[in-house]
Simulated scan of single mutants.
Amino acid sequence: MNTAEQLHPQYVTDEQGNRVSVILSVAEYNELLEDLDALAAVAERREEPTISHDQLIADLKRDGLLQD
């Protein structure tokens, strides 16, 4: 996830010097969109039940997706 310090924004200001828009590189913009998608997925799954790591490993082995 990006932090404000990692971005290199340029600002568009009005006549009074108030920031009204932000200009980001396409790469930085796309990274922010990916971060938003990841956060939305986390929020959507917040109420799902969890299982322990040991149970996950056992389930993967049972289903043949993980070998000893």
Rank of each mutant, 00 (worst) to 15 (best):
residue 15 E to S: 11
residue 36 L to D: 15
residue 14 D to E: 05
residue 64 G to F: 01
residue 43 A to E: 11
residue 17 G to S: 05
residue 51 I to A: 10
residue 4 A to G: 11
residue 62 R to C: 00
residue 66 L to C: 06
residue 47 E to I: 01
residue 54 D to Y: 14
residue 48 E to S: 04
residue 25 S to K: 03
residue 20 V to F: 02
residue 1 M to H: 15
residue 13 T to H: 10
residue 66 L to F: 03
residue 55 Q to S: 02
residue 10 Q to G: 08
residue 36 L to C: 15
residue 44 E to W: 14
residue 53 H to Y: 04
residue 44 E to I: 04
residue 36 L to I: 13
residue 49 P to R: 06
residue 65 L to G: 04
residue 66 L to S: 03
residue 5 E to T: 09
residue 27 A to G: 12
residue 43 A to M: 00
residue 23 I to R: 07
residue 64 G to M: 01
residue 23 I to Q: 14
residue 6 Q to M: 13
residue 1 M to N: 15
residue 2 N to V: 05
residue 50 T to E: 05
residue 38 A to N: 15
residue 8 H to L: 03
residue 40 A to C: 06
residue 18 N to W: 00
residue 59 D to C: 03
residue 58 A to D: 15
residue 46 R to A: 13
residue 7 L to K: 00
residue 65 L to K: 14
residue 48 E to L: 12
residue 64 G to A: 00
residue 16 Q to T: 03
residue 21 S to L: 11
residue 6 Q to P: 07
residue 2 N to R: 11
residue 57 I to K: 08
residue 49 P to I: 11
residue 25 S to I: 00
residue 24 L to E: 02
residue 12 V to T: 13
residue 55 Q to G: 04
residue 60 L to I: 08
residue 36 L to V: 10
residue 65 L to W: 14
residue 50 T to F: 07
residue 20 V to Y: 05
residue 9 P to E: 09
residue 47 E to A: 06
residue 35 D to F: 08
residue 19 R to N: 09
residue 54 D to Q: 07
residue 58 A to F: 05
residue 4 A to Y: 13
residue 50 T to L: 09
residue 16 Q to P: 07
residue 53 H to N: 09
residue 3 T to C: 07
residue 27 A to R: 08
residue 67 Q to N: 11
residue 15 E to V: 06
residue 45 R to Y: 08
residue 21 S to D: 15
residue 34 E to C: 04
residue 54 D to F: 12
residue 5 E to C: 05
residue 19 R to T: 10
residue 31 E to V: 02
residue 50 T to C: 02
residue 13 T to L: 09
residue 36 L to P: 13
residue 3 T to F: 03
residue 60 L to E: 14
